[in-house]
Design a protein around this nucleic acid. Structure first.
Lengths: 345, 345
DNA sequence: CTCCACTACTTAAACGTTTAACTAAAATAT
DNA sequence: ATATTTTAGTTAAACGTTTAAGTAGTGGAG
């Protein structure tokens, strides 16, 4: 990097003090009573020297960096990349810059990421935390760092958060499957301490109960994040390969859905005639599957924007009680869960 | 944010100068001849006060921020999010933090993004520039900002870059279509000044020539970025809806491929029997299409890692000539372009 | 006993800003 | 003619570091 001009250089050139330059360049010439003629010369010199303020010096002085941290599981997951795109766009519009970090569901990595953001003195953090990182979020809170939880939350740590009503929309999804005539429904979920995940499971159970459908030990299949990463996913395969397999499936998120779709293809199971499918979250693959998947669509635009709004409110110092914002989600019904449609086709 | 402890506080507590504290905490106690006992007391005080160095002050002093900027078209495009994921991971491993910005193929946005990164004094930038931003890249160069072009390049501005051989792999892809028996092949490409895009077109033309296939004005259909964003995409629809439509299609990238796939579904064109398909770049949808798409797979891991390597080399000051690294790409053949396969099925 | 070399530090400048507090000169008021 | 206010700035501290240059005190050599 070439040496850049500083206000000192401008002061030298014009023959005034650096304070005068600073006042003029910040539009505070009235306040500091700098004469019009001098002010003009300062501005001219700034242009002549192609002056660019030093952001670091300014931040050091002001204590704010106009930077926010965005921490999520994996930016290559379309759910997160869409959210990131929305957040980055709006942050930019508001003069904020976004530092991104992925924790890949690894507790240590998540901790390191947060430490880095604290160290770099970002103004605030939007985070979709890893499983089991309650203590890290608490640390954020204790450090007084403004943050917003998105998608995931910890009820033990009252925080600003933006989520959807996972229970209710899951209940609706499973209700729909039941009403379409699928009665041996199973759910595939992550084996985690995530409350939003448990809410989805609770929604499933509620619907089953409401519809008077049987729930057994095989009704909820739990898989791990690393199962999904590796090629192995025995649990799903076993579930679908056994003689009296379910006739309806509810996937707890798009990673599970996409994995399961692979296996369904592999086993040549016919959708929706043999099994009805609904997935939580969307994924492009679902549109191109021969029986496009019914799915739960979270309002990502709202989610991203509300997260930033909530963060900005905190940054402006209007801190009151933590707010939990619930944004919309809707069930999009397509061929994968509609038996009649299959007959009609 | 709570008030954090500074080296000044430590100095006070221990009763030494701030310089001593700084030397000890940077492991330069030998060099500065600080006694072992004092050093220990300083370290103890640092722990006691939970001292965290102020990154901004350090950066201001050192002139480096250990931050890199990553500028791409749109993080919600899987090509870019995969690349971003790889780059973020490796940057983190090397103690660098990444600021992300999307230009959405908008020249002004791209310019603003780069200005912001310059202002914030990132140590370097990895950029997949917007169409028509040669002057912006030149400005980067003139400012002495280390940067690496990735995926896209401007031959008029010799730069460090990481790309694939777009010409060669396109030629192979079209060759393959021809050899499979498709002889009325068209290409759908972006209407842009991008050289990598033109290389792909050149590869198409070369293959057509080599195979002695006819090339007419209808052989290359150009679409714009905004066509793809909006629901409208008349050019592709018209091409596929006319009586003597092509029997082979080569898509210049995954955005085009996914749009075209929609139209193909809509028109109920049978793949690969009626049209053979190959797409540049992958996309999850291609795996779940009833006839999985043949595609050109860029080695993204290599691309991301080499980009960072190249940037780090510059940061270490080993600047020689700009290097143009060409990473691997391969043609993955699946059902969408194999006629025999269709018959066998 | 003086000089020199060490040891173990400290001082102070520098990075580039912002901003509260001060001041010299001019203008106005009494 | 003197006191007061206003104008048009300047000085200097502060943000939290790093680091070159300086120094006070001690030990040993000659």
């Amino acid at each position: 990097m070439k040496k850049k001009a500083s206000i000192k250089d401008i002061a030298h050139l014009v023959g005034v003090s650096i304070a005068s330059v600073s006042y003029v360049l910040n539009g505070k010439e009235k306040e500091a009573k700098i004469g019009a003629e001098v002010a003009d010369r300062i501005r001219a010199a700034a242009i002549q020297l192609n002056y660019q303020p030093n952001f670091l010096a300014r931040s050091l002085q002001s204590g704010t960096t106009r930077t926010i941290g965005l921490v999520m599981e994996d930016i290559s997951n379309p759910f997160f990349s869409s959210l990131a795109s929305i957040i980055e766009k709006k942050a930019q519009e508001n003069g904020y810059t976004v530092i991104i970090g992925c924790h890949y569901e690894n507790i240590e990595k998540c901790g390191k990421l947060l430490d880095t953001l604290l160290l770099r003195q970002v103004d605030g953090i939007i985070i979709s935390p890893a499983d089991g990182t309650e203590s890290q979020v608490k640390k954020l809170q204790q450090a007084g760092m403004p943050y917003v939880l998105v998608d995931r939350y910890f009820s033990a740590i009252p925080s600003n958060s933006v989520t959807i009503n996972n229970f209710e929309i899951s209940r609706q999804a499973v209700n729909h499957l039941a009403e379409e005539g699928y009665h041996n429904i199973a759910m595939i979920a992550f084996d985690s301490g995530f409350e939003h995940m448990n809410d989805r499971v609770a929604g499933f159970l509620q619907a089953m109960k409401d519809k008077g459908l049987p729930v057994g030990p095989a009704s909820i299949v739990k898989v791990t994040f690393s199962d999904m990463q590796s090629g192995e996913d025995n649990a799903i395969f076993k579930l679908l390969n056994k003689k009296n397999r379910p006739d309806g499936l509810f996937f707890a998120n798009n990673v599970i859905g996409s994995k399961a779709l692979n296996i369904i293809n592999q086993l040549k199971i016919s959708i929706p005639s043999e099994i009805g499918l609904v997935c939580f979250d969307e994924r492009e693959a679902f549109d191109y599957f021969y029986a496009p998947l019914s799915y739960i669509q979270q309002d990502l635009k709202e989610m991203g924007e509300k997260s930033l709004d909530l963060l900005f409110t905190q940054l402006k110092g209007n801190v009151s009680q933590p707010a939990s914002i619930v944004v919309g989600a809707k069930l999009v019904i397509r061929q994968s869960s509609v038996l009649q449609g299959a007959l009609a086709d």
